[in-house]
């Protein structure tokens, strides 16, 4: 086994900032969508907890957005594992590999060792779809936020509710996509453990240190397969 530097520092930072932002956004978002019934004898003028929750949501949204922008930039300047070309299946080989991963890892009808070091083909494609959902979530979120914010940046999104047929529908799409994030997180964490368990390559810790492990001579074989 020899170590390979897979996830560079910006990728790791993106990952954890993204994870924290999503957790913060999902929790505050869920509270905004369905605030708890708090009995209070206080006057409204003495309390602002719901406003605070909304502010946290908005700040986390900005963090989420710009973090996402940096990751897209890194897709053009980062190493081969971070490159944008992995994520969009425009080559026939990528579709072939996706099918292979489905047979080996999802349906488990084919028994084979996993030769991938970065994202496998199916994971890459999934992240491409996830990025599209990120984009949609940013658009719908800032779209409904634009009405209550006078900032020039959020006012760039005033066209979104018009496109989606009103603030109510935009809000609903935003809410439904929150569930996509929750279910994505479940599968994501499970698959990290799964790959660590069967591949023995340090998948879990790789997002902290950046290193993954590979059997001797596998890299050459992988490169040969690429050709």
């Amino acid at each position: 086994m020899h170590p390979v530097y897979v996830w560079e520092l910006p990728v790791r930072f993106f990952h954890w900032i993204d994870a924290l932002a999503i957790v913060a956004l999902a929790i505050t978002g869920f509270l905004i969508g369905n605030p708890p019934a708090i009995q209070s004898s206080m006057e409204a003028s003495n309390s602002y907890w719901f406003g605070t929750i909304r502010v946290v949501h908005f700040i986390a949204a900005y963090v989420f957005l710009f973090n996402f922008v940096i990751r897209i930039y890194w897709g053009f300047v980062g190493n081969r594992f971070a490159n944008w070309k992995n994520f969009i299946p425009y080559r026939k080989k990528q579709w072939h590999d996706i099918w292979e991963i489905i047979r080996v890892d999802v349906l488990q009808i084919k028994c084979e060792d996993n030769p991938n070091l970065g994202h496998n083909a199916l994971a890459s494609f999934t992240y491409f779809l996830v990025f599209l959902v990120f984009l949609l979530q940013v658009l719908t979120g800032f779209g409904i936020y634009s009405a209550s914010s006078g900032a020039w940046f959020s006012s760039l999104f005033t066209w979104v509710p018009v496109l989606f047929g009103g603030d109510m529908l935009t809000r609903n799409i935003h809410h439904i996509l929150m569930w996509f994030f929750a279910i994505f997180a479940m599968i994501h964490v499970y698959l990290v453990f799964y790959h660590d368990y069967i591949d023995w390559n340090g998948t879990t810790s790789s997002m902290i240190g950046g290193w993954k492990f590979q059997e001797e001579g596998k890299e050459e074989r992988e490169k040969e397969l690429e050709k």
């Binding site: 969508g33 369905n34 999802v106 488990q108 028994c111 609903n172 809410h175 439904i176 929150m178 569930w179 929750a182 279910i183 479940m186 599968i187 499970y190 799964y194 368990y197 069967i198």
Partner: peptide, 28 residues
């Protein structure tokens, strides 16, 4: 509502993951 459908999908996903974990231990 989205929350009911989402919760249902979440539970279904959880069940699917458990099934997959069991299958992994047998087939792999």
């Amino acid at each position: 509502t989205a929350d009911k459908v989402g919760l249902g999908l979440g539970i279904a996903t959880g069940v699917g993951l458990v099934a997959h974990a069991i299958s992994t231990n047998i087939r792999k």
